[in-house]
Design a protein around this nucleic acid. Structure first.
Lengths: 245, 245
DNA sequence: ACCTGAACACCGTTCAAGT
DNA sequence: ACCTGAACACCGTTCAAGT
């Protein structure tokens, strides 16, 4: 859409891997996955396409670097929680649940703020430690709460997977918020064959209005957290009342 | 990888939208998103690229059709559950929980069996009723269990989002199972800076061994289902003991 | 070492033309 | 109506060359 910024021909040694990755992230946020091509990126940096290959090797490698760079913000921003985030904790809720909620919200917001990140999760192979900041926090809190080693690992993955799925759904649902408004979406749902999907058609208003945005993520996160509490309770009653090492 | 099947020049009226979509799904399953180009698809069908445009309009439209075609299998396959699926239901577990588990497993398996589907969820805009078969089943079971209208909608989305996120993670983690084995992945995790990620490094074995495949999905699904039971219990105790309409 | 220019083997799609 | 051929404006990347 936006007119491609024409190259003001950068000076000789102004390029760097860091600058390239930064520009790549900017182009991804701006124009989505399609907005980032080696050629558009080169143009953006005032350089010929092949100049980039001095620093990156391939586009895939660049995409991985962009992903890791965005996710690298995870541990640093940890204490950026607003009052609103902590305000709605349930009364009598254990501290570890509240802390996991904050990590989850941060992760979800990062994914929604960088929609291209979701594309990268669904496109590039994973090693498993991409969201290391959130992983470490998850695991530490879970272990302190009393989860055993295997339980902490599985619970962490569940939280991560839920955040990823929620953000994916949310981002793609809102990709063209303007062209397909809520009203139209509700009409589309209500217009489905009622003999095959009676309940879906009946609940069309709730599906469109009530399951969107951070509100829906918070609901799902609370469900997961309640399930984890139940899990911990059961594990403790089996092992006996004293907490595990 | 596979040598491109050379066109045996199809007879004149052998093409159809249905045949094109089927072939597209096959190419997607076989070679991933990159394996499907209008040109490779035409070759596969023994036809020139532009012949496809009589039936599809654009590649994007074709991708949506392929996604909807795969997801269309959701309602039909409903009773394909094996004994193993029902065998591990917890004793004294309400029937609705068991039914939701079956739907979830079916959804997860479909996503993992068609990895390109995950790419489509993260790439193409959503209307909200793509997985209508699973949605209808979810909503009906939830309503019968006693969830109110808004609660059923939110609970359904949570189940859907969790399945999507789990499948995404799983598929991308295993994309090159051969080139990056578990052993190597565990070594990579254990080699991360222990001062920044002590718990992660410590739990590397559990993270690699215990959080993979359908086993991990079942764990997360059980967590979500336990959370939903808790949710329902609380809602009922607020409204009074008699079930809601 | 850092960067350019030309080229190759691809894309999706338009447009005019053939049957 | 159904399909082809040639062409356009793109891709990522190789290769040889310039500084």
């Amino acid at each position: 859409m936006a007119t491609a910024t024409r190259r003001p021909r950068a000076p000789r040694n102004s390029l760097s891997r860091r600058a390239i990755v930064d520009a790549a992230v900017a182009l991804l946020d701006e124009g989505g996955p399609a907005g980032l091509t080696m050629r558009s990126l080169a143009d953006h940096l005032g350089v010929r396409p092949m100049a980039l290959y001095t620093y990156v090797g391939s586009k895939d490698e660049l995409l991985d670097a962009a992903r890791d760079h965005i996710l690298g913000g995870l541990s640093a921003h940890r204490d950026a929680a607003t009052d609103a985030d902590t305000a709605d904790s349930r009364h009598g809720e254990p501290g570890w649940v509240q802390r996991l909620r904050l990590v989850g919200l941060e992760l979800y917001r990062l994914l929604v703020a960088h929609p291209a990140l979701i594309h990268l999760f669904a496109t590039r192979p994973l090693a498993g430690h991409e969201a290391a900041g959130a992983t470490e926090e998850h695991l530490r809190v879970l272990r302190e709460a009393g989860f055993d080693r295997a339980g902490a690992a599985r619970a962490h993955l569940t939280l991560l997977q839920h955040a990823l799925g929620s953000a994916t759904w949310e981002v793609q649902l809102n990709r063209d918020r303007d062209v397909l408004s809520r009203r139209r979406r509700q009409e589309a749902l209500a217009a489905m064959p009622a003999d095959h999907y009676p309940t879906l058609v009946d609940l069309a208003p709730e599906l469109v209005e009530g399951t969107v945005g951070e509100q829906q993520f918070r609901y799902g996160l609370d469900v997961v957290l309640a399930g984890l509490q139940e899990r911990l309770r059961r594990a403790k009653s089996e092992t006996g009342p004293r907490p595990q090492a």
